[in-house]
Simulated assay, not measured.
Amino acid sequence: MNKHLRNFISLVLVAVMAVSGYKIVTTLLDYKKASDTYTEIRENYSPEAEEGFMEDDLKNINPDYRLWLFVENTNINYPVVSYGNNDYYLYRDFLGEDSKSGTLFMDYRNNFETDESTVIYGHNMKNKTMFNNLELFKEKDFWNSDSLIHIYRGDYEYIYEPFSIFVAKPEFDYVKVDFDGENDFNEYMNQVRASSTYWNEDATPKYKDKILTLSTCSYEFDDARTVLEAKLIDKIPIQ
């Protein structure tokens, strides 16, 4: 190998390392910015904030705010937004700024008050934020821990009990917001049950029960999705 070739290869390697380093640094900075943003929002406006739940302030900060989501025994504790499509908040934070973490967002077709099924999406982030902790429900011990899901909206807290965790194949249209009658509902439930890694028989929903679907990317195969399904079991006034 002549000197010129060795120098060229060295330059290429240095360039590759520089680009890789830049990408790592920018990713880490983006993660920190997102973490700081949501930590501040939690501390000041969430149901656990010292001054209490500041929903009106959240709406003033972002009119697209719809509800607050908290999943027990996880770090899922975020505001949820909704827009006119399911793309806008994929890479925008709650403040509307560019972010790889994005924001948890409700399906644009959803009306939380009236729909039979509410669907919420979020990224499966490598730093274990956003909806990454849905992966915990794939572990048998965690599934058996009976971690409930809480939604805070208006004057009420809505409590959901998980009944299924599964990895959805691309051909399964699991993001329904309503059902075309009882037969459609039963067919959907049969598909969910057949796909499930774990199923909670005690929380099996009946037709017209309110359902919550939490969805994130998964990596078992191309276009896989980790999906946690839960049934509304209580609605109580926020104190």
Results as ranks from 00 to 15, higher is better:
F163W: 02
F163N: 01
F163I: 02
S164W: 03
S164T: 01
I165H: 00
I165C: 01
I165K: 01
F166V: 01
F166E: 01
F166H: 06
V167L: 07
K169D: 15
P170M: 03
E171I: 13
F172K: 01
F172M: 06
D173I: 12
D173A: 13
Y174Q: 02
Y174D: 02
Y174W: 12
V175G: 11
V175I: 12
V175H: 11
K176H: 14
V177S: 05
D178P: 12
F179L: 03
F179I: 10
F179N: 10
F179T: 08
F179C: 07
F179Q: 07
D180I: 10
D180E: 14
E182T: 06
N183L: 12
N183K: 15
N183V: 13
D184N: 15
F185Y: 07
F185C: 02
E187M: 11
E187H: 13
E187R: 10
Y188H: 12
Y188S: 08
Y188E: 05
Y188L: 07
Y188I: 04
Y188K: 09
N190M: 12
V192T: 07
V192D: 02
R193S: 04
R193V: 05
R193E: 05
R193Q: 11
R193Y: 12
A194I: 02
A194E: 08
A194W: 06
S195A: 14
S195V: 08
S196E: 07
S196I: 01
T197W: 06
T197G: 06
Y198P: 04
Y198L: 00
Y198R: 05
W199G: 00
W199C: 00
W199Y: 14
W199V: 03
N200R: 03
E201N: 13
E201S: 12
D202C: 11
D202R: 15
D202F: 14
D202G: 15
A203C: 08
T204C: 08
T204E: 14
T204Y: 08
T204V: 10
K206L: 08
K206N: 10
K206Y: 06
K206M: 06
K206S: 09
Y207A: 01
Y207F: 13
Y207D: 05
K208D: 10
K208Q: 09
D209A: 03
D209Q: 09
D209P: 11
